[in-house]
């Protein structure tokens, strides 16, 4: 079954086209990474799916119900985490979760049980009696995730759930999402490729309000497999590395070379030739690699390639 579907979704703000005919199909039970650069239309899509915004044109369905037609029915089955979660700061997290449970009509005993469970899951048991107003950003994010789960939703809509957090907070939130695998469909928007690569099993790439591609993560990586070699040198050999990269860029078997610190990433056209030619080129440039590795393509490579193609087409 399809958990989220959109057909030719358009959203226009004045002269700005936020969504430009977005088509989307998210299968039930997946952790779907909705990936795109800032301003691509990710938040607008989620706002339309939740009923907070209205499409200028096109239709969307959530769990089989048309958005805007039967919003209360959708609301009962959906959990939502906005990009910047907002709370009643005068409440404690226990009160907030209890209030959320009341909105969903949970009976008192179940509400108490869910509140306890979710406070534990969010690691907020010790802060259960503190006012939310005094919480750190990480605590607020965890509470926001907890409130989105109070109704055991069939679909969880997460808008940039980890992008504002420090590395530790990000890890916690991504582990949290990973634990939901098999329990519900997760639709997660983000501009952080590593997060999608880590937890999502299906990926949709959006750029300028249009879906560039949508496929299972592994299929996408396989389809757009870009042979690449990484070469790492000592920190005191950076200038030699730069000269070497300039010299090999012109070779016909090289597609591109990028350098990040002491690591050069060479995208190649012909991996067999590259393997032998690269090894020959190091002594000529006075380089002794500390690491030489034929690497798997990353989602970042796929993303940059697809978005790059899209931009070039425009």
């Amino acid at each position: 079954m399809i958990a989220v579907r959109a057909e030719q979704l358009r959203k226009i703000f004045g002269k700005f086209i936020a969504l430009d005919g977005l088509d989307l199909n998210v299968a039930e039970g997946t952790i779907f990474g909705f990936l795109g650069p800032n301003g691509a239309g990710k938040t607008t899509t989620i706002r339309i799916l939740t009923g907070l915004a209205h499409a200028t044109h096109g239709k969307a369905w959530v769990l089989g119900e048309e958005v805007g037609r039967n919003q209360p029915e959708i609301a009962h089955q959906v959990g939502f985490l906005p990009e910047e979660p907002a709370f009643y700061n005068w409440m404690t997290p226990r009160e907030f979760l209890d209030h959320t449970g009341r909105i969903f009509g949970l009976p008192a005993a179940l509400r108490a049980e869910r509140t306890k469970e979710l406070l534990e899951l969010a690691g907020l048991e010790e802060s259960a009696k503190r006012r939310i107003g005094g919480f750190s950003r990480g605590m607020r994010q965890r509470l926001a995730l907890a409130q989105a789960l109070i109704n055991r939703p069939k679909l969880l809509l997460l808008d940039e759930p980890a992008s504002a957090l420090d590395p530790e907070g990000r890890k916690e939130v991504l582990d949290f999402i990973d634990h939901l695998r098999g329990q519900c469909t997760v639709f997660m928007s983000t501009h952080i490729l590593a997060d999608v690569e880590r937890v999502c099993d299906t990926v949709g790439i959006i750029n300028r309000g249009r879906l560039v591609t949508e496929a299972p993560r592994d299929a996408l990586l396989k389809q757009y497999a870009i042979p690449a070699v990484e070469v790492q040198v000592d920190e005191n050999k950076l200038s030699e590395l730069a000269s070497w990269s300039e010299s090999i860029k012109t070779q016909p078997w090289v597609a591109s070379v990028s350098i990040r610190g002491p690591v050069a990433r060479v995208i190649v056209e012909d991996i067999a030739t590259a393997k032998s030619e690269l090894l020959k080129s190091f002594p000529l440039a006075g380089l002794i690699p500390t690491r030489y590795e034929v690497v798997k393509p990353s989602l970042e490579d796929v993303f940059l390639k697809l978005v790059g193609q899209e931009e070039a087409a425009k």
């Binding site: 009962h76 009643y88 009509g105």
Partner: peptide, 14 residues
Amino acid sequence: DRGTAAMMLVKPMP
């Protein structure tokens, strides 16, 4: 302005 209305009104609250 604070976003609490959006946070609560996506839930089954008319």
